[in-house]
Design a protein around this nucleic acid. Structure first.
Lengths: 137, 137
DNA sequence: TATTGTTATACTCTATAACTATA
DNA sequence: TATAGTTATAGAGTATAACAATA
């Protein structure tokens, strides 16, 4: 059957988590991917686009559009790296920092609700399978 | 950080599992999605396309192309349902049954190797997180 | 009227190749 | 010559709308 297939369950677990985090973050005007970008950018020193892409395992051509969107929303700023003018260092704006902080809280809450939901309904099968397949019984 | 985010880990776990199953199944000329379709079709009575789509939580318009591909490979056959001629009942061919049987074995092996790999390398973080987040300690 | 399969279309995410400006 | 960012393009996977045949 299907419901003991890890591929099927991982796919639908991810779909449901994405749905939950997307609607939870919507009031901030961002989605989970954009929050992830803000998270790596806000972790320490400003990063070049490719550095941020590397940490997220995202292609550099995909990162261009992500930064475009965040810049349009006023959450980040591209500034040429004085030490290597091929690079853009991407800085969080004050607004970006605010959105990052509340976005992190919202994301954690949504993640926790998703995990709690695993205990009920159809999704219990995912937890069951993970428990068995990971040998955690 | 990123590596304790369930969304990030689920995504990359799925990517790696897909990669493993895709290359393991390649000698059979099918991928994991097509094996899943063969699995629901081979489970019991022949199903109409929408019934199969429903069990896989796949859109009926997507199912059309999936059945097209499997039919071109000679693994399934559409036959009009005599009881309701709007429907196609999709039957496994003998070749389709053979591919399903060995595909299932191959899939299970790949799944097991994926889980084993979780114990080593970077992916250990996934197992750690799942263990913690699912409260399985 | 409603439903099954189908086609056309579009949107998202991703990746490859080629361009520009720098190094 | 190599690299960072960019653009154009194409490939999956998905979904919506509309159509023909059938109920």
């Amino acid at each position: 059957m299907l419901h003991d297939r890890l591929g099927f369950l991982l796919k639908h677990a991810q779909l449901e988590l994405t749905e939950r985090t997307t609607s939870a973050l919507a009031p901030l005007g961002i989605n989970g991917r954009e929050l992830a970008v803000l998270t790596v950018l806000g972790a320490g020193e400003a990063l070049a686009q490719q550095q941020a892409a590397g940490r997220l395992a995202i292609d550099r051509t995909t990162m261009v559009d992500l930064i475009d969107a965040l810049e349009r929303k006023g959450l980040v700023e591209r500034r040429p790296d004085p030490a290597d003018r091929r690079r853009n260092l991407v800085h969080l704006t004050p607004g970006g920092r605010t959105v990052l902080d509340s976005g992190e809280r919202i994301y954690r809450t949504a993640e926790g609700e998703f995990v709690a939901a695993l205990d009920a309904g159809e999704a219990a099968q995912l937890k069951e399978l993970l428990r068995r397949v990971l040998g955690l019984d």
